[in-house]
Design a protein around this nucleic acid. Structure first.
Length: 852
RNA sequence: GGGUGAUUAGCUCAGUUGGCUAGAGCAUCUCGUUUACACCGAGAGGGUCGGGGGUUCGAGUCCCUCAUCACCCACCA
């Protein structure tokens, strides 16, 4: 294969992915220690966003690395039916057609959404492929697959039997637009200005933001110690209302803050969470005033059929007319719960729902977490997860939507209290023991079933996959769903399987837009990964997106990093072109990477260090650091130094070995370009994806340090040349073996006319080396360098002073590690030598200055 | 109200257990077409690591404190 001048990802990526897939490399190999990670399932019918790109990249880097380490690596893909999310999308489409979900029965709606999802499926998987994810497609799982449903039902039944699940009428966060309840965690809050109305209630004045709920009031509450109201506690008082006088109880409760408003509060148990709590304590009736459509009901009399917001104003006005409204504080700020999808104000609504007793479910999980059974990256998130599980309230898992897994609970049509579990949930009506049961119309919260993901994907409990690959090694997902998903997976996984579901949790932060804002569809600043892949290639996206990123921290998307990564691919490409050109078509002695020159030793040592560093970083999930090492080893060490040096004396074995090593190190990060190049290596028959992680070959340290000396000389010459605007100067030395041996190399790399031996030095003496050598410049030109030399003299002098002071400090010498002290000593010696060189060079100038 | 994180070069960000002259990419300036690459090469400039205290031989890193920003949790009638 003749390689083009620049790497064109478009030309190779699809082909390479096919090659991998057809080779079976994505499947875990038989036997061996497993490494397992399951993909957080992207929405089946939506496009991947940049967060998925980050997620997939991190997981795939880990998997490819572990695969090359010889593990039986499994990256298991999936697709999410995404319950409510998808239904919302479908509802929008219905709206455009002038229809509403309420035009259909839940079963009809389910069928329609199913078709909708089927029609749009496949796109997402294509995009996962385009990102290079090395997933085992044969094990792909959809969150509505029979396996998932079956296992979820099994858990529901087990929890039912363990009394971890209960059905009850409770206040639930309810969106009157979508007409479904939510879990606490799904409600978002907005700070708003809400008028605070002061209502007259018999002897009380009480402050409320919700006068329209007064028809559901069943008490007035005061603080037990509030002297103002002592006489009323426990009494029933009479107050004037809109429709004449009414009676209401006065209760005392610690919850009431005497300092807020008037210290007296109306209690509406059916529409306020705190009031509900108080009602439980005082045995108060709960009267519904608001219907599921968000309208007031008959309880509100003349206001029946009015939406809440309108009723609020009208009720206040009516109260005012009757002289029952004392005042309105228009500037009151409070936080209002809203639906995270549509922004509709969440109404606390009394509903019969299924709840999970989270205290009991979470307790064993908390215990395991405290025993450090799961390593968190970043580590601080462990503590936060524990705190969350310790304080979490019971979890409402019923959703009044169509798109989801039906709840396998049936109610006796004759006896509302008679609920049974039955997994024939595909039927609406079942008969049992001569009785008729009707299925609960609701579906599960999608997070209830996705809480099973780490094992349901492995065909829990009987499939050998489960026994082999559970628990997972790595769960990688966004930090935004730590509680929503990760915490619940841990609790549910432990409950169902008896083992925590994964050993490591890696939480990536959010990818923000370039200007640092949140990326969102509504802001119109989302970035399509497909576009990045089209313009820069998949590898560039992978590396650019993980570069400089820390777990748990949000960071802006930086296109310059994608550019850099694209250029990096091209650098690799051209290294390959050079190496393959240099070693020629007949090369086949790849095992003889015998170092000869100092440069050979030096690059072997560099490759060894890079391998060690990257291995350590990848083992510890420090992706960005590993990439950084790769980048600079490839670019700075191999391309800029080794290749340039090898133009003087090419060592085919080391060049080939170096290229192979770099391709291996690069492969987890840049799988496409590395594999593409690998396929051009004549002596390699297999696939890079299936090859092994490099084993470091050590170079000789002393030989390597000779090359470091040469680098110092070359760098100094380049610097002086640039500073003095020299071009093609000459270097003289007085019998230096180093310079005699490597004159050609230095001349080439420092862009000199030549290097030659003389009996007496003249010109500008180099100060970075122990060798006696001079750049051939006239006194006039050399003198113009004096300023620079003096700067160096000052800096070097400071450095010497600092190190001397340090070594004079007895505490340092006795407390600091021995190696460090030794290093300081040798650095001091080197520094002193350099200073001496600089000093004598400056003195020489002074001498010649007097001559003039 | 409680909690967590962030504050490092013009911009976006690294910096693992405290270790000596704090890094990267991009941007800037100067030069350069020497048989891989202009998606390039060489050189250079740019930071009192948010402020103030403390611990230590040594602090970007640990402790205290203040400030600013971000996020999470609770949720105010």
């Amino acid at each position: 294969m003749k390689l083009g001048k620049t790497y064109d990802p478009q030309e190779y990526e699809a082909m390479i992915y096919d090659l991998w897939e057809q080779s079976g490399a994505f499947k875990p190999k038989e036997g061996g220690e497993p490494f397992v990670t399951v993909m957080p399932p992207p929405n089946a019918n939506a496009n991947l966003h940049i967060g998925h790109a980050l997620n997939n990249s991190l997981q795939d880097i880990a998997v490819r690395y572990q695969r090359m380490q010889g593990k039986s690596a499994l990256f298991l893909p999936g697709a999410d039916h995404a319950g409510f999310e998808t239904q919302v999308v479908y509802e929008k489409q219905l709206t455009q057609e002038g229809k509403s979900r309420f035009d259909f029965s839940r079963d009809e709606l389910y069928a329609r959404i199913y078709e909708f999802v089927q029609a749009n499926r496949g796109n997402m998987e294509k995009q996962v492929r385009a990102m290079g994810a090395s997933v085992d497609w044969s094990r792909a799982m959809f969150t509505l697959d029979e396996q998932v449903v079956k296992t979820t039902y099994g858990t529901f039944k087990k929890m039912w039997e363990d009394k971890l699940i209960y059905r009850g009428e409770r206040l639930v966060n309810y969106c009157t637009f979508h007409r479904t309840g939510f879990a606490d965690i799904e409600v978002s809050y907005e700070e708003r200005t809400s008028p605070l109305y002061y209502l007259k209630y018999g002897p009380f004045t009480l402050a409320t933001t919700r006068p329209e709920t007064k028809f559901g009031d069943t008490a007035v509450a005061v603080h037990p110690d509030d002297k103002r109201y002592k006489e009323f506690i426990g009494k029933v008082i009479t107050a004037e209302g809109l429709n004449g006088p009414f009676e209401i109880r006065v209760v005392a409760d610690q919850y009431v803050d005497p300092a807020f408003g008037t210290g007296a509060v109306k209690i509406t148990p059916a529409h306020d969470f705190n009031d509900w709590e108080i009602a439980q304590r005082h045995n108060l009736e709960a009267i519904r005033v608001i219907n599921h459509d968000g309208m007031l009901n008959h309880r509100a009399g003349q206001f029946e059929g009015m939406p809440v917001a309108e009723a609020r104003i009208k009720v206040a006005a009516a109260l005012k007319d009757k002289g029952l409204l004392e005042k309105i504080d228009e500037n009151y700020r409070n936080r209002v719960g809203v639906c995270y999808k549509c922004g509709t104000v969440i109404e606390p609504m009394l509903l019969d729902q299924w709840f999970i007793d989270m205290k009991r479910l979470a307790a064993p999980a908390i215990k395991e977490l405290k025993r450090n059974k799961i390593a968190f990256h970043p580590t601080q998130k462990l503590e936060q997860t524990i705190t969350y599980l310790e304080t979490v309230k019971d979890w409402n898992i019923s959703r009044q939507i169509a798109w989801g897994i039906p709840i396998p609970a049936f109610q006796n049509t004759e006896d509302p209290d008679d609920w049974i579990f039955d997994d024939r949930a595909n039927q609406e009506i079942i008969e049992l023991d001569g009785k008729t049961y009707r299925r609960d119309a609701d579906v599960f919260d999608t997070w209830f079933s996705s809480g099973h993901w780490p094992f349901v994907t492995l065909d829990y409990p009987d499939n050998p996959d489960f026994k082999r690959f559970y628990p997972n090694d790595l769960m990688e997902t966004g930090i935004d769903i730590l509680y929503q998903w990760v915490a619940r997976m841990i609790a549910l996984g432990l409950y169902v399987t008896g083992v925590v579901p994964f050993k490591n949790v890696y939480l990536h932060g959010m990818v923000r837009s370039e200007d640092g804002r949140k990326m969102s569809k509504s802001l119109g600043n989302v970035l399509d990964p497909q576009q990045v892949i089209a313009s820069h290639g998949s590898d560039a996206l992978r590396m650019g997106i993980i570069s400089g990123r820390s777990p748990g921290l949000s960071a802006a998307y930086d296109p310059s990093k994608i550019d850099a990564a694209r250029n990096f691919c091209n650098k690799l490409w051209n290294i390959a072109r050079f190496v393959e050109d240099t070693i020629g078509d007949n090369y086949d002695g790849r095992h003889k990477a015998t170092p000869e020159t100092p440069a050979d030793h030096w690059i072997l040592l560099k490759l060894q260090h890079a391998t060690e560093k990257m291995t350590l970083d990848l083992e510890n999930y420090r992706f960005s650091e590993a990439y950084d090492t790769l980048y600079h080893t490839v670019w700075d060490d191999f391309a800029d130094w080794y290749i340039e040096a090898s133009k003087s004396s090419p060592n085919h074995g080391v060049l080939a070995y170096g290229l192979e090593t770099l391709l291996k190190l690069a492969h987890p990060f840049a799988p496409f370009v590395s594999e593409t190049i690998w396929q051009t290596l004549k002596w390699e028959k297999g696939l890079l994806i299936s090859s092994s992680w490099p084993v470091a070959k050590a170079g000789n340290k002393e030989q390597a340090s000779v090359f470091s000396d040469l680098q110092a000389i070359i760098t100094e010459i380049r610097s002086i040349s640039r500073n003095l605007h020299l071009s093609r100067s000459h270097l003289y030395h007085t019998g230096s073996q180093l310079l005699t041996a490597h004159g050609e190399l230095i001349a080439r790399m420092a862009h000199l006319k030549g290097v030659s031996e003389v009996s007496d030095g003249k010109g500008l003496r180099l100060t970075s080396t122990k060798e006696n050598c001079w750049l051939d410049v006239d006194q006039e030109t050399a003198r113009s360098y004096l300023g620079k030399l003096e700067e160096q003299q000052t800096a070097e002098g400071l450095s010497v002073e600092r190190m001397k002071a340090r070594l004079a400090n007895k505490s340092y010498v006795s407390n600091a590690p021995k190696e460090l002290v030794a290093e300081t000593k040798s650095n001091l010696a080197a520094s002193e030598h350099r200073l001496q060189q600089i000093n004598s060079e400056i003195d020489a100038f002074a001498a010649t200055a007097q001559d003039v």
